[in-house]
Design a protein around this nucleic acid. Sequence first.
DNA 1: CGTAAGTTCTA
DNA 2: AGAACTTAC
Length: 679
Amino acid sequence: MSGGGCSIVWLRRDLRVEDNPALAAGVRAGAVIALFVWAPEEEGHYYPGRVSRWWLKHSLAHLDSSLKSLGTSLITKRSNDSISSLLEVVKSTGATQLFFNHLYDPLSLVRDHRAKEVLTSQGIAVRSFNADLLYEPWDVNDAYGHPFTTFAAFWERCLSMPFDPEAPLLPPKRIISGDISRCSSDPLVFEDESEKGSNALLSRAWSPGWSNADKALTTFINGPLIEYSKNRRKADSATTSFLSPHLHFGEVSVRKVFHLVRIKQVLWANEGNKAGEESVNLFLKSIGLREYSRYLSFNHPYSHERPLLGHLKFFPWVVNEGYFKAWRQGRTGYPLVDAGMRELWATGWLHDRIRVVVSSFFVKVLQLPWRWGMKYFWDTLLDADLESDALGWQYISGTLPDGRELDRLDNPQFEGYKFDPNGEYVRRWLPELARLPTEWIHHPWNAPESVLQAAGIELGSNYPLPIVEIDAAKARLQEALTEMWQQEAASRAAVENGTEEGLGDSFESTVIAFPQDIQMEEDYEPQRNNPPPPRRYEDQMVPSMTSSLIRIEEEETSSDIRILAEDSRAEVPTNAVVNQEPRSDILNHGNMQTIHSNTLPQHNTSGLRPAAEDSTAESSSSIRRERDGGVVPVWSPSTSSYSEQFVGDENGIGTSSSYLQRHPQSHQIINWRRLPQTG
DNA sequence: CGTAAGTTCTA
DNA sequence: AGAACTTAC
């Protein structure tokens, strides 16, 4: 027991009692107030979607009942400002300490850093922990101490780190409750009446909550894992782990997953079970990608809204809301794509392979701005996860150094026969095609009229013709790429000549406002090769969390983001390269640099704030845990000049008013309940 | 044993 | 789509 007052354990996306370092620290320190603050407005544009909120609701209820059986209960606060709520709880409970686990999305990095500052200044001892990753982002560096810029190298390093990931902690045996007599819980509303009906079906397929997550993990490890390498290429998701929503909300710790899976791997290796061993490697790789998504987000806090490779700024996206609508509705005329999109809206779930299919179709065939697609995923996926989805879309869009080739355009027809060779998946989600023979199931437009008639299909009527022909898409993609490189070269020349500093208007061409008036009418008319509408400057505003960060800067005089940045510099380890340029300068004239995709990243001076790496290089895990307790990961805008290979992370957001200010309802834009249900 | 064809992979 | 690797004859 330390110093009288109790501790607040601020729970966020770590909704578990097992292997929860912040909770364990609170319990060790004495009496505990377990707190959850629901402040979705803080998420800005990324207000959680319907199914995600459904999950959260149940996960919290589950956690609350676990906490109750351990001796306390979950305090819930409804808020517009997490930090005010923290202060309020401090006041009403007399807490003297705050513990929480790290998050790595851009908003949390800033918010949590500020929380630490504000609470510390009020005399509260604040400690934070790694609970979400095998290794903290700042611990994984190349031989020169620089962050990795490709996944393979990153993951290889993770698997060969000199110290193992922390072993998972057991749940506390009991929790001494802090004094909550004067601290009331707010009722949290996660779904409105109209959403309840749609959500009712979810509980048939999913069981949120940490102990259910644990069961899902065990089931997977003892079942499908061994076949993972063999089966993972099927569109049907029978062999996936189904852990992603659990992992998103931190219902199970990734360290525990890693641990148990590794044990299984050793077992299989000893038995000489090569396939099992390989399966584990592949599964762990998908865990690694999740790690990498946090790593990227930490190193490039704008990666959810801006291509990491600069030239993509100049890609002439097709701004066609008709295409976008057809994609969402599953009416593109490509059966595998459409089946995937129908499954997504009906269930909130999509196999990883199909996510790749529908998103690469979106980017490469329709050439719609990838952020629209990412936003739709955010709104509809049960496991919507900003960092993972940003990584996925950037990978597909070819905006990562190791992403897919820009000019690669996969043919959905061939992918169909690859991932759904018998057409079962298509038939399940596209009943209108159910009677079509397998021979034609993935390319009905080629089917003889008699076959279509026998199957009851009238193309263009009850199932659309392809919205864009693949050949046309290929040609258009080539044109677009040519244009992109020309613009990129022109911009670079302009910068070199000093004619133009930064990007000027050219940047704006990729930053396209999310459509505002999406209606889900069914009377969709396929549009072919419509010229993109003219792009007005006002339309280019980014719907973004970072815009809302700027708003903080503008509106909250007491918490100027520049002050935040300067303060955080105190925590910069001495070996970090610090760009002293103040943020306001950056905003006014971005020092943007663009490069060719095939140039390898060379010097990526990190602008990260691991903070307070005070002790020496001891690698004993107990000491390390102690060290982690003092660290709050902070990304500080003033110090981010990451890599010359990448877009300057601080560029391009210099427009004055925030998207949120102008579109407060933007998160409600997609009313996808009104989509026609299939089946 | 050499070449062709097939398979599997790509964050 | 294309490379790299494996299998078949």
